[in-house]
Nucleic acid binder design. Structure first.
Lengths: 325, 325
DNA sequence: CTGAAAGCGCTAACAG
DNA sequence: CTGTTAGCGCTTTCAG
């Protein structure tokens, strides 16, 4: 059942049907009614593909995350989808994993589908910068990177000031009287580097000596970090790069009989559900994924619309206090 | 840059370019090479929209969940996307929320886009059964419901045996010596009803008296349930309908100084990350979202392919032991 | 092995 | 207000 069938059945031209379909006003009430009756009778659904061919747009944007199962990405992706939907776009979800090849593969697929824009979530995607094909692939497609950067002429970023974020955690601990604050480094992305730099800067600002423990961003990684922490002399607080790691640290400390926050304080990052599930609840840096998602879509649409002065945006994180500090 | 430009530049017909693009074998090596050179030179990307118009398929499926931020849905959606991608499909992500209207709205949008199929995740979508438009909307679109049902001729389900799942939890508690096992009911979906029925059946099977507490599927809801539980006389265990609720219950018990599992045992449902984050870790029913996602895609593709005998599938949950029982 | 021509379902000038 | 006519970029007969 296509527009021709409808036109024939209503005894009008396809142009008229198209006009009714698109709510144009240059159709007489009588004709409109006649056409609408036929439309309703068959529950007619126009083909967005055919429309897309003409309009060169399917009103679709692609969102690439490493893995939507990671709560922080899920929140960002949700916010993006929500805002896109509000603006009449649908969202293609892509879980790229860590491998660059997979990311490129997804990009190729969605570029073929002529998505109106692409949002890359997470600084893990910065690795794509080394792909020479990338430039050619994305020349015609507006791209926004949420919390990362891409060196391309038509790509912009929404960045979270992670440097400041970790600083907030350190300042808070110092204010609580801590001096020997250890950083638990758990990832190796661009964003993770900004966090660590933020820690170093904050410690130096307070005239304190930085110390760092390396581990994995998992529960087990956190537990190991806690064990390592307990062997350090007179360290009293841990600043973690991820909530999950912080929860692991908490577990490790509690299992060793260390009281939190009395004997040791812990901070997390992301202020995810994880931070609220554990007991005591974590003090964590809220890096505003909903805001980042919203801004990303705003930025993307201004790029799609070819509007002037799209500028990269920086979101300010906030410290969310829990009982772990 | 379209197929005409390539054809002109390579000095061949568009038909030949199309053949090269699609890897057909009826092209001479020389011609193929010539065309491929031009293709590569311009990093040519064919338009999936134009192809879609001819093929009447964009190799896309829509996945509707209430909210991807819920870990269980995120895991299911991830599994679906992963499997779809493997089979050459892209996935449209839709967060419908609880309202039926929103669900219908998303369905209309993706049906217009001629998705090859739709996967509805979660029994919350069963509410759509009351929508009369639904039937007309989905007549031509293969539909799979993951953990729910839709009364439509061309829709099939992948169901989790939640009745059995809760039964496993009860059996385990009974085996541990518990008699007074309370059910914490936290949702009102089809799946939640199956869980409660499973509880009742299991209790009756063991000749025990069922008791039930009603609350919300949130941390706060769990905490309230724990408080209510403590007022009951001689109850020693709680079976919860969701991990998040169970974590709340745990929190409530620990805060009241009740030791888990010594004084009271708790089980969750979903075996999500939540279950592992809390201390002690939860014994939880693993309802296999990855398996459900995989089966859903398999089923959907057999529907799309018009293959014979697609049948609804039932997945068996398993009990994942933690330290909370 | 190669190309001409028709058409997928729709929108958009351009005439009436 | 309405219809005719071209495409949008591609695949697919059907002839050579």
């Amino acid at each position: 059942m296509n527009i021709y069938d409808i036109a024939r059945e209503a005894g009008v031209s396809i142009t008229t049907v198209s006009r009714v379909l698109n709510g144009k006003d240059n159709v007489s009430p009588a004709t409109r009614q006649k056409v609408e009756a036929v439309l309703a009778l068959h529950s007619y659904v126009p083909s967005a593909i055919a429309r897309g061919l003409v309009a060169k747009s399917m009103k679709t944007v692609a969102v690439l995350t490493v893995d939507v199962r990671v709560p922080h990405y899920a929140r960002t992706a949700y916010a993006i989808e929500h805002e896109c939907s509000r603006r009449g776009y649908n969202v293609l979800m892509c879980n790229t994993g860590e491998a660059k090849e997979a990311g490129m593969h997804y990009l190729e697929a969605v570029i073929e589908k002529q998505v109106d824009g692409v949002i890359l979530v997470g600084s893990a995607h910065s690795a794509l910068n080394t792909e020479s094909r990338l430039k050619k692939l994305l020349v015609r497609t507006p791209t926004v990177v949420a919390n990362g950067r891409l060196k391309l002429p038509n790509s912009y970023s929404v960045l979270v000031d992670d440097h400041l974020g970790v600083g907030l955690a350190v300042d808070h601990l110092v204010q609580k009287g801590h001096q020997d604050i250890v950083y638990v480094r758990d990832m190796d992305t661009e964003s993770a580097r900004r966090k660590y730099d933020g820690y170093l800067a904050a410690m130096s600002r307070h005239g304190l000596t930085p110390r760092m423990l390396d581990t994995q961003p998992t529960l087990a990684g956190g537990i190991e970090a806690a064990q390592a922490f307990l062997k350090l002399k007179k360290a009293t607080a841990l600043v973690c790069g991820e909530d999950l790691t912080a929860v692991g640290v908490l577990k490790g400390l509690l299992r060793a009989g260390v009281r939190v926050p009395e004997d040791a304080a812990v901070t997390g990052y992301n202020n995810s559900e994880y931070a609220h599930i554990c007991e005591p609840e974590l003090t964590s840096v809220d890096n505003k994924p909903e805001m980042v998602g919203l801004m990303s879509v705003q930025l993307l649409e201004s790029l799609i619309g070819g509007r002037a002065d799209p500028a990269s945006v920086v979101v300010q994180p906030q410290l969310a206090l829990g009982q772990s500090t």
